[in-house]
Design a protein around this nucleic acid. Structure first.
Lengths: 347, 347
DNA sequence: CTTAGCACTCCCGCTTCCTGAGTGCCAGGG
DNA sequence: CCCTGGCACTCAGGAAGCGGGAGTGCTAAG
């Protein structure tokens, strides 16, 4: 960890804040004026020179001002940033947004839009995996002789469903019976347990099972298969906000970035990483490890249901973002979301 | 409708095709060479002059070649375009994509991705309104004493659900009874009918209704309320493909365009418009009537379930797109989708 | 009616020049 | 020893100037 004189710290802080504000390289003269420093431009230049040697800032070219490096941002975020809590007004307006909605799934999805609106950046939300949730009930519904709707309900009110085409027709009575047996067998287990158990049951010979139950297992298993394929555990909103930033206007990079939003793979990994840690996490530029995000910073915070981390909310923007503001917003949002979900959960 | 000499038509066709191919204004010399015309550049210039007077082409500036106007594209599409059917290989590869998936909802959603991949433009899909579908069954499931999961199943296998918080606790038996009464009352009606009937029933005094049925009606109504709010009847994919086109690289326009993708309002209107007509529809530039789309063309085709138009698929790209190819693809895709859905429906 | 020829226009890319912002260094002063 | 004013130096970026080339419109001859 680099250590600086208080003056150098102050200077660096002023420089980065200035650069975040207007995106232009900042020179010694402007810095003195802007930040109201009590020493001269020449002194500032000397200090800047030191900071440059430490790799915290750099010049785009000889006669331009200085610009923060990723290391500079990192230092800024780690030690210079006073994360002032949001003023109560902002908190209140965020809270309002959480009152309107009640359905947990919808609430979670709406948070990405909320984040993108208040930060004017792109908002992301990692929705909970369903694995840990308790299994509540399974229903078979005959749509037609050869089409059966399988409905699987989890304890938190999530519903998974899928139309399947069984090999032979089943009567409603048979379906009812199968569902009963199935529900008896799996009641109270977690979805992940159910899924694993189903896989195992499918592998076993069908002989040691009632024919009807075997069919039920097969059908239920298809619900999971469908979920695994079609699941969208990640929501991104407000991508178009990023078009407003000149530093992201390189078409090729922009394309990569938007492809990453579509593919979601990389973002998912990133968010999963940040699920293990507690509190707000910040990935500056290349720190995320993904090329597409190298011109961006990502601020994330996990959220919980009844004390258990289940997902992550976050914001993606240019490296030059108002970290203090964004961090507060992401933090508060994650807390509010946790609160809303846990209340809803407790019923 | 403008009418041209055969030669002028041929010239215009060649010019537009050339421009579509490389995006550069095309001059008389290049046109002669490229299109293998048997008359001289000077003649071409004379004809071009006529075409310009008719508003079919224009010069970006004095010494540049000519570029099609929207009117030019329109004429091209209307009368010059020989929509060659896709070669069987392409059709086959499209067909493949329709085999893998079976769930209608998922299939429909995946089509927007499919279209964006094969055209390298943005794909859009308008999913069916649920109004016309038949109502199959309603279920109430007690999650906890104060939380009830309402599951509404339509005849086509679509499932709508919502967690509600009734004012007083209901026992599973009560819920079962309510569902039975409800299902008896509404079986066989369309969702729209059910919805309207629910609204009416809610207005009426509760006295002439069993208390339990009234609760059922209220709860069921909330499912529709939830659907109306959260419904996403439009899917867009491959937006990032559009970043590759220099004519769309104006940041401000790009932003508007992407905002339109997010807001979806305008696109929805456009697609609803094209649902009433049969077959492929083409909106060139300002023809769509939406500012955000003024640099784009939209190609759409409605798709059907059992002979009834239920939605629209389409492609959005720059005005300079390979209309013949895109039209074929959109057309075939709509047909294949209709086929897949109708088969699935018939069971 | 076509076509060759020709004068004309004007974008584009190239260079050149200049200006202004900003730096690095040095030498003097507290 | 550190700060500061001064000064020479660098360099991006805009303005101006300058062909070259692509393309046009017009005219006159075949």
């Amino acid at each position: 960890m680099v250590s600086l004189t208080p003056r150098a710290e102050r200077l660096l802080k002023a420089l980065i804040e200035q650069y975040i504000a207007d995106g232009q390289p900042v020179g010694s003269r402007t810095l003195v004026k802007q930040a109201g420093l009590e020493f001269s431009p020449a002194t500032v230049r000397n200090i800047m020179s030191d900071l440059e040697e430490l790799g915290l800032i750099r010049s785009p070219h000889t006669s331009a001002g200085r610009v923060p490096t990723e290391r500079g941002y990192r230092f800024f975020v780690n030690t210079l940033l006073a994360v002032k809590p949001l003023n109560t007004q902002d908190v209140a307006s965020l809270e309002d947004r959480f009152l309107a909605d009640q359905d947990p799934q919808q609430l979670i999805e709406s948070v990405s839009g909320l984040l993108s609106q208040v930060t004017r950046l792109a908002g992301i939300v990692r929705v909970p995996r369903r694995a840990g949730v308790g299994f509540l009930q399974l229903d078979f519904l005959a749509l037609s002789p050869t089409r059966v709707l399988v409905i699987l309900v989890a304890q938190d009110g999530q519903v998974m469903n899928r139309v399947i085409h069984p090999k032979r027709p089943y009567s409603p009575a048979e379906l009812q019976q199968a569902a009963n047996v199935f529900n008896g067998a799996y009641s109270g287990r977690s979805l992940e347990e159910v899924r694993r158990s189903l896989v195992k049951a499918l592998r076993r010979d069908s002989e040691d099972m009632q024919q009807i139950l075997r069919s039920a297992v097969e059908m239920a298993h298809q619900v999971f298969a469908g979920e695994e394929r079609g699941e969208q555990p990640l929501f991104v909103s407000g991508e178009s906000n990023l078009l407003a930033f000149p530093e992201l206007s390189d078409t090729e990079k922009l394309r990569r970035l938007f492809d990453a939003f579509t593919a979601k793979q990389d973002l998912l990994h990133l968010l999963d990483q940040s699920m293990v840690s507690q509190g707000v996490q910040i990935f500056i530029g290349a720190e995320s490890g993904y090329e597409a995000l190298e011109s961006c910073s990502v601020v994330t915070a996990p959220y919980e249901v009844d004390g258990q981390v289940v997902g992550t909310v976050g914001v993606i923007g240019p490296k030059r973002m108002s970290y203090d503001r964004v961090i507060s917003i992401v933090d508060v949002t994650a807390r509010l979301l946790s609160g809303a979900l846990s209340h809803g959960q407790a019923g």
